[in-house]
Design a protein around this nucleic acid. Structure first.
Lengths: 319, 319
DNA sequence: GTGAAAGCGCTAACAG
DNA sequence: CTGTTAGCGCTTTCAC
């Protein structure tokens, strides 16, 4: 029950070598003879030595950690993304610091600030308000960042093609015979994503000679509409609730299609028709982009567009 | 575009005071005259000074962060708990380091080890394998920990009364007229939780003079059984899938009750009857226990038992 | 192969 | 009210 935990110095004293040598064997760096290494490892074990990451990080001037900004972890789409990021990070020996912003841009900026104070090695933005100042702060601190699942040309970025994805949804609905199709969004949708998905909706409508309606911002029935394209699954599911609570049947009276491809929508009882995002690929590319920067890659922002996949289930049908 | 970010030393030089004074105004500690404070703040701003948390933490020998161990973030029950913890932590200026174990005890131990290397101020275990060595390591490092949502008498702990909660589920089923009731669990359930919930089930069965069946470990129909009490909502929902896929109707042919009270089960299309856990209260108490230790409170482990609440929805009915 | 020395940026007594 | 003095535990040249 030591009052102070053993340091590299203690290990050095016990094994009769210098701090440098201990440091070398702990890190597996430099050349150390086998007997010395064994002796050091042995005393480290008996002393119960545990490296102090704080000291290491201070001299390296960079924490062995990445930050993750997420809008809403209660949304299973994002929870899953966080989980995937954390797995990659821990495989790379990096800790994961998580920040939930609930979609507030000012909170986002504040959390980035604390991540910068903590000198994280990189940041994954699963939510990005679009605030250029945030990107600037990151760049000024030379902390690489990648925005995932929300398109932004100013940063390394990987996202699904929102425009094309939403068009898929509208075409599916139109092919079913729907003509009055509404787009429904919500407060937790980033502005850029909202715009892209709405544009995809509107363009696809016009391509079919249908009239796009203004974006709805709450999950409520719109008179005369027979089908809804929601900005994400959560909104779609809530919309279904509201619709059914109002006595409408889905897909009997109205059709609903979501966006994301969450587990929630996948449940047979819900069977939400949706445009699924390739979550694993999103993170794989995101981590790869970040990794390249961490390895020193320099150059202009790179963007990766992934395709969304229409999954027809049971919330859509003929009008 | 400075190659090196400004330090407290630079700010001191610019404002013509010592490092200590700068440190004092940055931290709001000590007594500093208003004019001096203003001058320091001013030069800090113009220099774009940002405190280095790494250095602060090193001298304090404790990172301004807590660790959170979670079994499966993709389970919305836990995602929600993580979100609540993160909110409390950020309110207390603490960063949140997250570790997803996928229920593997060895991963849990490994992640605790890295949290200890990083000298976190405390740990919230949303998942706990029950490994005493983990608790010992934490105690040896004098890092307070609280286990939440899973009972363990050896640590500060807050959890729902699993035994009584599961009994509620069984009594509900029995009152409906079911006599052949099975208990179904899964691999991601902690051993202690599994035992407590199974015991609650078995005892409630016997109290009604019914015969408890051995615990089922997969979401599959058991011949002759008319009702299932699942160890959690996720298992219950999967069970419903399997049952319906096998041609059985819920609750027409069989009834199912879950445990947790997740959003997934709450959806009208699913309407899972369940024993809801008071998530906010769980975290509020957990954070409070941890906070007390952080403030130096000493003493034996304290445990808080919360009551689960039966929420009757639409997956249960008469046999 | 191994060691000595010089910090990383900040806090914390303790003087003045 | 402000400054001086020591480190926190580790990495990293650079000698030997």
């Amino acid at each position: 029950v030591s009052i102070r935990r053993p340091t590299i110095h203690d290990v050095a004293a016990v094994s009769g070598v210098s701090k440098t040598t201990v440091s070398n064997v702990i890190r597996g760096a430099g050349r150390v003879s086998a007997p010395t290494r064994a002796r050091v490892l042995d005393s480290a074990r008996t002393l119960g030595y545990r490296p102090n990451a704080l000291a290491r990080d201070l001299v390296r001037r960079r924490a062995n950690a990445i930050g993750v900004i997420v809008g809403d972890m209660a949304n299973s789409f994002y929870a899953e993304l966080v989980k995937l990021v954390e797995r990659r990070a821990s495989e790379a020996e990096l800790a994961t610091m998580i920040c939930n912003t609930d979609g507030h841009a000012e909170l986002e900026a504040a959390r980035i600030e604390t991540l910068l104070e903590r000198a994280v090695s990189g940041v994954v933005l699963l939510q990005f308000s679009g605030d250029g100042a945030v990107l600037d702060a990151l760049a000024a601190a030379a902390v690489p960042a990648v925005v995932v699942s929300c398109w932004d040309a100013r940063a390394d970025c990987v996202a699904v093609d929102d425009h094309a994805g939403m068009a898929l949804a509208v075409e599916h609905l139109a092919a079913l015979g729907h003509r009055r199709i509404a787009f429904v969004s919500g407060p937790l949708i980033e502005a850029a994503t909202h715009r892209a998905r709405y544009a995809g909706y509107a363009d696809a409508m016009r391509a079919r000679e249908l009239t796009p309606l203004p974006a709805g911002l709450d999950a409520a029935a719109v008179p005369g509409v027979t089908a809804y394209a929601a900005a994400n699954d959560l909104i779609a599911v809530r919309l279904i609730d509201a619709l059914e609570a109002a006595g409408l049947r889905v897909p009997g009276d109205v059709s609903v299609v979501g966006f994301d491809g969450t587990d929630l929508g996948a449940h047979p009882r819900i069977g939400l028709t949706t445009v699924a995002q390739p979550r694993a690929a999103l993170i794989a590319h995101g981590v790869e982009l970040l990794g390249a920067r961490l390895r020193g890659h320099d150059g202009p922002p790179r963007g990766v567009r992934l395709a969304g996949e229409l999954m027809v289930r049971t919330t859509t049908g003929a009008p």
